[in-house]
């Protein structure tokens, strides 16, 4: 890529003495061979790496299907990437995560709270915010995506990641309930239930499109909250 020029005068001798700079030309044959070897190794490494990343981000194809494990070995865990930014289509629904809890009162009674809209809370925190925090913008949103990706249609976890996703989401909602002081004085969160509320973004005014504005709910079963977690505070 010769799309930019180089400033030849910006070289600096990092060595203790200003070494004479002539590149390979200044070297005797023995050293030239070593330099050529280094060049070959780096060239191959660069090509392989770019090739692997390309196959990783490209759609599944003949080559990537054939060499799937080799590509995964190279890419994961440190070179993983996903650049389908708002693609192929941007998300066209607002997905809100809501939670309600069963509280054990100090007198032993059980009380069920109303639904807390945690995403709406995030939304309010983001409004007018020049620097939204990852805790407001990514935490709950991505935890829900993670849960959906690791659960079947009957909301049962699939594999280890499914269990991890459940614990993660549970810990997030317990933390948020604690901040809302949902348990009240002396109360303890015993169980939580989470649901998502999906609404279509209303189409632009200048379009003739019609979409339903009725929200759709996906309700997860009630989850027990381990006792040590109910009092937990991350800070």
């Amino acid at each position: 890529m010769d799309a930019y020029d180089t400033a030849g005068d910006a070289r600096h001798g990092p060595g203790p003495e200003p070494a004479p700079r002539k590149g390979v030309a200044a070297l005797s044959l023995r050293y030239q061979i070593a330099a050529a070897l280094a060049l070959a190794v780096v060239a191959v490494a660069v090509c392989v790496h770019i090739g692997m990343v390309f196959l990783h981000v490209a759609p599944s194809n003949t080559v990537s299907k054939k060499h799937g494990p080799a590509i995964e070995d190279w890419i994961y865990p440190e070179f993983e990437q996903n650049w389908k930014l708002f693609a192929p289509n941007p998300l066209q629904q607002n997905i809100a995560v809501q939670v309600r809890a069963e509280i054990r009162e100090p007198d032993g009674g059980i009380r069920t709270t109303g639904w807390y809209d945690l995403s709406a809370h995030d939304g309010r925190d983001i409004d007018g915010n020049l620097l939204p925090s990852h805790t407001q913008q990514n935490e709950l949103r991505r935890a829900w995506d993670f849960l959906v990706a690791t659960h079947d249609n009957d909301n049962r976890p699939v594999g280890l990641r499914g269990d991890l996703a459940e614990s993660y989401l549970r810990r997030i909602v317990v933390l948020r309930l604690d901040r809302e002081d949902a348990a009240g004085p002396g109360g303890l969160v015993e169980r939580v239930q989470i649901r998502s509320r999906t609404t279509n973004v209303r189409p632009p005014e200048w379009s003739q499109e019609q979409v339903s504005d009725k929200p759709m709910y996906r309700e997860l079963p009630w989850w027990e909250v381990p006792e040590d977690e109910a009092e937990g505070d991350p800070a």
Binding site: F86, L91, Q92, N94, S119, I126, D127, N129, P132, V201
Partner: peptide, 10 residues
């Protein structure tokens, strides 16, 4: 659409 998602519309 992204302009009208609650998480991306400050």
């Amino acid at each position: 659409y992204p302009l009208h998602l609650d998480y991306f519309s400050p």
